[in-house]
């Protein structure tokens, strides 16, 4: 295993299409719920401990080698909003393309063949981490970090935040990321014996609601 692969995978410049998505931040800003750095921090904290935790659990489970199709179904059951299911599958498809070029392996090829429309991003992320020789906890870190790095990057553009302040938001949440990744990796250890019910399913009502709201807006900078 080489841990450095995690840096490549979690890098915002990894060509997986994430830059076009704000993770609900654009709609929260439009609705006036996120106005400054302090609001952004609380938005990210909530997203990290809900959809971030769910993604981290699914990614860690996929990295253990658990059946990605069962995890894909589990991701559907954990994603009530159809706009979020579409976004996740679109991002999953883009990540799969990048991953197959970067760390080619049979498991990624199989997933691409069985889910031509795209598998959920978190599941692809976990399988990619596995292909890159990373551990389940590494996959959980990548998913947890991704759940807030996107919103922060989007908020810099939408609110014209000072990039130093925005990066400080991510640094401020480092202990929370540690906690979420550990929780997700621990849950993923039980998936082989207890099935997908062992994985986190934390939900955030406003993220579901605003995702559907955002999908209806004709003028928007970010796809989600």
């Amino acid at each position: 295993m080489n841990r450095a692969a995690l840096l490549v995978l979690a890098d915002g410049r990894f060509p997986a299409g994430g830059h076009a998505h704000s993770g609900g931040a654009e709609e929260a800003i439009t609705a006036g719920r996120v106005r400054d750095v302090a609001d952004l921090r609380e938005f990210c904290r909530g997203r990290l401990h809900t959809s971030g935790l769910v993604a981290a659990g699914l990614a860690a489970a996929a990295a253990t080698g658990y059946d990605p199709l069962l995890l894909d179904e589990a991701a559907d059951a954990r994603t009530a909003a159809p706009a979020l299911r579409r976004t996740s599958r679109r991002l999953g498809r883009q990540l799969l393309r990048a991953a197959r070029a970067t760390w080619p392996c049979a498991e990624l090829d199989d997933l691409a063949a069985t889910r031509p429309g795209g598998a959920h991003q978190s599941v692809v992320l976990g399988l990619t981490a596995r292909g890159a020789g990373l551990l389940p906890v590494d996959a959980a870190y990548a998913a947890a970090y991704e759940s807030i790095s996107g919103p922060v990057a989007a908020a810099v553009r939408l609110l014209r935040l000072d990039p130093f302040d925005a990066t400080a938001v991510l640094a401020h949440l480092a202990a929370d990321i540690d906690h979420v990744a550990a929780q997700a990796a621990e849950a993923a250890q039980h998936v082989h014996t207890d099935g997908v019910a062992a994985l986190p399913a934390a939900s955030a009502p406003l993220l579901d609601l605003t995702a559907e709201q955002h999908a209806t807006r004709p003028a928007r900078l970010f796809a989600s």
């Binding site: 401990h49 589990a74 059951a77």
Partner: peptide, 26 residues
């Protein structure tokens, strides 16, 4: 087969529960 799997955590000890991503004061 799972149709819906959903957890919520509100109140003291649930990080971010009242923030702009989860309940925002509701």
């Amino acid at each position: 087969r799972p149709v819906l799997e959903q957890q919520t955590g509100y109140g003291p000890g649930a990080p971010g529960w009242d923030g702009p991503a989860v309940l925002a004061g509701h």
